[in-house]
């Protein structure tokens, strides 16, 4: 865990959030909190409402009911653009790099709302230092990168907005085991460097091992919450999500 950090204060709060696709409620009134500097995990089975929750936080899917507070402000009706300019970046499921744009252009898109050209260039160099593979491929279109490289690009792109809160949706999905390990290591580095993280992850064991706090979603509602260790030792979590 981090070095001498100031006392945690709440960065993000959801109050009785309800999200609907047409008439079907995918999220049925959940409340959760993410404190500054924390890595919070949201775990649960497929279709539990994890991705939907992230989409409503990042403004892609306006919630039907409930409230979203970011740094104490009500941002429930914010658009994706509003949320990003407040400091919430979202690395979506499946990486979603722009396949016909170069690595550099993808990173520039991450900094789309920023106007500080020189600092953007510096941040891009920092991403390239962190991910030398991307530096080698900076003029290559992203669609030709391997899955692991695309993941690094998606993370780098999310960092380019200099977020306060980073939402990760299934960062390990579809990646080779050694890349999964690397991805989780990078996410922990990002947290250590001071960015708060809310992560949705199907790999419950890995997520609970690395998080400060976790919420378990089951069919759109919160079933459990607690520290990673608490959930790891919970009998229900063990049988249902950790294979006994």
């Amino acid at each position: 865990m981090g070095t001498g950090r100031v006392a945690f204060i709440t960065m993000l709060e959801l109050h009785n959030l309800v999200c609907r696709y047409g008439k079907i409620a995918a999220v049925k009134g959940i409340s959760l909190a993410v404190k500054r500097g924390q890595l919070v995990a949201l775990i649960g089975a497929n279709g539990a409402g994890k991705t939907t929750t992230l989409k409503s936080i990042s403004g892609l899917l306006p919630p039907a009911e409930g409230q979203i507070l970011f740094e104490g402000r009500d941002v429930t009706r914010g658009t994706a653009r509003d949320m990003l300019s407040l400091g919430i970046a979202h690395a979506p499921e499946g990486r979603r790099v722009f396949p016909q744009m170069t690595v550099e252009e993808n990173l520039e898109m991450g900094a789309y709302l920023r106007r500080d050209g020189r600092a953007i260039a510096q941040d891009m160099e920092r991403v390239f230092e962190q991910f030398p593979r991307l530096a080698e491929r900076r003029a290559q279109v992203a669609g030709t990168l391997s899955g692991g490289e695309q993941q690094m690009l998606a993370i780098g792109r999310a960092l380019m907005s200099r977020p306060k809160l980073l939402l990760f949706d299934e960062p390990s999905l579809g990646l080779a085991p050694n890349i999964v390990e690397r991805t989780f290591a990078i996410i922990q580095e990002i947290r250590t460097s001071g960015t708060t993280i809310l992560m949705v992850e199907q790999n419950a064991y890995a997520a609970l091992e690395m998080c400060d706090y976790a919420y378990l979603l089951e069919s759109g509602s919160l079933a459990l919450e607690g520290s990673g260790q608490q959930l790891l030792s919970n009998p229900h979590v063990r049988t249902a999500y950790l294979g006994g």
């Binding site: 990042s58 403004g59 892609l60 658009t79 994706a80 653009r81 990003l84 300019s85 970046a89 979202h90 979506p92 979603r96 722009f98 396949p99 016909q100 744009m101 252009e105 520039e108 898109m109 991450g110 789309y112 709302l113 792109r157 907005s161």
Partner: peptide, 23 residues
Amino acid sequence: TKLGKAMRATFQDADTAALMGVS
């Protein structure tokens, strides 16, 4: 141009472009 880049991004993946702050 930046507008053109945003147009290409929107063409390739509108949701993700929105996440980048593109209106």
